[in-house]
Design a protein around this nucleic acid. Structure first.
Lengths: 178, 178
DNA sequence: TCAGGTGAGTTCAATGACTGAACCATGGTC
DNA sequence: GACCATGGTTCAGTCATTGAACTCACCTGA
């Protein structure tokens, strides 16, 4: 509709945080990015996993693609189908999402929902995504996510079910679409 | 109006990130917290610095106080005046804001707007808020914020002007309210 | 051939949130 | 008593979000 970020700009702010929030600060946006990092790639998977209205999902995927956070690409020709894959710019949001999740857990969470570990050594990630054992910041593809005790062991939607298996971040989700 | 987080809940999500976003995910909320960390405490200072509608500011201060992120307290009796001071729970959002700001700067910023340094040694903070020289994560009260070259050197509102002086985070802002 | 299904959307009316401007209430100050 | 500062509330208009229904292209099995 307009040249800029949706009319959702924080006009007077000279601030990188405000700039960032113009891009990813709208409702649902960061949850879409989170799912993309978890390996969700397809419209329908985002839809059922997030419980987001279709129109909003379409709009968010548009914006995120336009901002270079997701990349749309064809994964089959016969019935033409596209998927949305997270880019470097999207992967760079991992520390933000990690920090936000940690804050949410520490201040509002009852029980552990997920564990994040260093794939190489199995050590649980520290607050900044580092591995205490290896002494390095763990690259996103080397993070393994596994379910914690607080997670519903038998969720309704197939995406949540697929996310019960331990898996690496970014690794595409294996749902049973047919 | 209701018992929970404003009707802005992400109903089906079992996720600390979603939980966090229910609390601080609304428009303006994280910018209010940012300002609070920068030392802004008074209704009018938030108002002029953010350019936020009064009604929205009032609502956000309400919610943030209810969620324990800000604390309202009387700072003078004669004409009774309250200020909103950031709590531990609010201070705990610093890593999130730091990560978000860094992402915004690296992917959308043209020039440096602010520098954050370790007050003790003057070293610029690393990506996770750590001091490379001292080898520690810098506690929020020991972070000094100074203006960078990209910042407008003569802003219109008094709050932005007060934020041009190097100052520690959390340290209350000294504006010239008379 | 045709009925039905799937994936990925668009359209639309209803509801809710945000915006800006105007108004109100205290408690000073001159 | 008139005026100002601070910290709000109210309100009408606009914009965003929702959920349900609809579209469209392409398959698949009978």
């Amino acid at each position: 509709m307009d040249g800029m970020a949706l009319g959702k700009d924080y006009a007077t702010q000279e601030c990188s945080i405000a700039r960032a929030l113009e891009v990813v600060g709208e409702r649902w946006t960061l949850l879409v990015v989170r799912d993309a990092l978890y390996g969700v790639r397809r419209y329908n998977d985002f839809l059922v996993h997030l419980g987001i209205p279709r129109a909003v999902l379409a709009a968010r995927l548009q914006t995120l693609t336009a901002e270079g956070i997701l990349e749309r690409r064809r994964y089959q020709q016969s019935p033409p189908r596209d998927e949305y894959v997270v880019t470097e710019r999207g992967i760079a949001l991992w520390p933000t999402l990690r920090a936000l999740g940690l804050w949410g857990r520490e201040h509002f969470g009852e029980s552990r929902l997920r564990y994040f570990r260093h794939a190489v050594c199995g050590t649980e990630l520290g607050p900044y995504g580092e591995c205490a054992a290896c002494g390095t910041v763990v690259p996103v593809p080397d993070v393994v996510m596994e379910p914690g005790p607080g997670l519903d062991p038998d969720p309704a939607d197939p995406v949540s079910r697929a996310l019960l298996k331990p898996k690496r971040l970014l690794e595409p989700l294996e749902t049973d679409h047919v």
